[in-house]
Design a protein around this nucleic acid. Sequence first.
DNA 1: CTGAAAGCGCTTACAG
DNA 2: CTGAAAGCGCTTACAG
Lengths: 335, 335
Amino acid sequence: MPVTVIDVAKEAGVSRTTVSNVFSGHGKFSEDTRRAVLEAAHKLGYRPNLAARSLITNQSRLIGLILPSYISPNTLAGTPFYNTILDSIYMVLRDEAYYDLLVFSLPAQGDHSLLGERIDARNVDGILAIGEHEPDLLGYLETKDIPVVLIDNYSQDTYTRFSYVNSDDAMGGYLAAKHLIEKGYRKIGLCALDLNSSPLMRLRQEGYQRALEEHGLAAYIFAHNGSPFDMGVRFADQIYRQGLDAAFCTEDMLAVGVLHRMLELGVPVGKEFGLVGFDNVQITTQVYPQISTIDQQIYQKGETAAIALLDILKKTREPGLRLKLPVHLVARQTA
Amino acid sequence: MPVTVIDVAKEAGVSRTTVSNVFSGHGKFSEDTRRAVLEAAHKLGYRPNLAARSLITNQSRLIGLILPSYISPNTLAGTPFYNTILDSIYMVLRDEAYYDLLVFSLPAQGDHSLLGERIDARNVDGILAIGEHEPDLLGYLETKDIPVVLIDNYSQDTYTRFSYVNSDDAMGGYLAAKHLIEKGYRKIGLCALDLNSSPLMRLRQEGYQRALEEHGLAAYIFAHNGSPFDMGVRFADQIYRQGLDAAFCTEDMLAVGVLHRMLELGVPVGKEFGLVGFDNVQITTQVYPQISTIDQQIYQKGETAAIALLDILKKTREPGLRLKLPVHLVARQTA
DNA sequence: CTGAAAGCGCTTACAG
DNA sequence: CTGAAAGCGCTTACAG
């Protein structure tokens, strides 16, 4: 039998209303009463039951996290981007110390109404989502009136009520290509994954193309789906065969793959061959030579999103935010 | 107003007991009744409220995840080990499709009774914990009667009721050092973090020392606390100055740091200098040259732990498991 | 199979 | 400030 408000009330010699008031901070009570209640609670080892509270307040103090719909084994581990985002969200929540993170576990290719069910069933107070998602799911989310904050999602023209945190992806692509051009490279390939399905990757590509056009240079597109590092290795082979002198990769792990293969082929990356990635994940400074890349401040991105959600929850900020974080080039050893 | 069992019962023309029975699978009811209930539920958009259910069944269908107590910004992102573990846990839960993962958000240096409070408050059905934890917390966990499965924790002699999933760390250290010796290296340094606070690291060290002793070689210990990659870089400088010809790093990110710095110093790693890591995280195959390491099958480890917890929850397996996963050497380019 | 009833632990008006 | 009462949405005996 767990200790309940009734037990605490009895022990402290007050009503259970008072106990409830002390714990929630509502209503009025004297300092003496407060102390007596807290003491009794401590003595008995009282722990408020959040499920019971949730039932009546209709709040769960839970933030639901939705990972990209195409998540599969190895997505988390294979793309350091997610780790950093998770890290930042965890830190913000930790300091807020009142919302726990709920990671929905949903069957692989299940229909997306399942997620909707779980969101309702768990009664989460807000949603944090990363990446692109099925229109079904987003449409459903729109009918609920909990705040939704999306990271790296480009549906902002469709859903006005959601909040969006994005980076200036087009600018990033532009800066990357421009940097390579300024370094003297002329045959600059683009390496990308999911170019058809990801608006974000498309924007990075557009930036690249704009820079090339400004300088009258031809574009070389290498696009395919697959795991980032492995595809980077494969793209490198193609780039090498075609005699290009530089590559812009729309995500860092692709660049790590390209670098790996180029070194294996004996190509002096950073001299004869220029390479720029995108994201600025930690590994870019850990490989040798260090990879030049577009810093999109991943940690701040997650932080910004989590703080935005918390603010909306606290009603200190209106929903429907459109936040676009700046990017900048970090020139290191590969270009 | 949410749709409740009462509404569904009315719509389906049955009692709410029957509705409840259909959803929980308990009790008896005809196929026709079942269909009628499900149809009514679907029509009204009924979603069972888990908080209400939890209140009465005393089950939450929530698995609590406890990260290492020393977690800080960058721990997740800085140590790819966690990503893979998380990935595997997520996958197991996803296929089970009924337990969600709860990540507690706890204030930085808060006293650990807080975690206990949250565990009670959320009423999690089971706990998955990674790494070492304060005796306070473990002692508290022992008083609860929910299953606890620990990964990479060496308190198995103190707590009989917990289940443990570990790797053969001592063997790993032994295999790593032995491999370097067989390759002809003689002055083999050990690079480690947290040697004082982590039994796991100590075991890896012991294995290393045993191998050296067997061959009458001297040990060189480099131990310090800090972020793995950065410390690897610093250790490399010391190793270089002292003229050692090989290093065994008790975790891969340390080896990545050593490799990075050695390449910078122009040392041909894999020839004049031998290097072996521990963990077999993905990055060891992504850097160039690829790092030889001890594979501890991280993914399987997380999977094993999650499955064990689920089995104990389902009562198909007794708690108090002691699982020790094998390790093996993966020889690549650095030794 | 069904229905009325009790109760999980909590909060919220409301009358004092 | 306090206490009695109602109720959140659900499940679980229990008598039919």
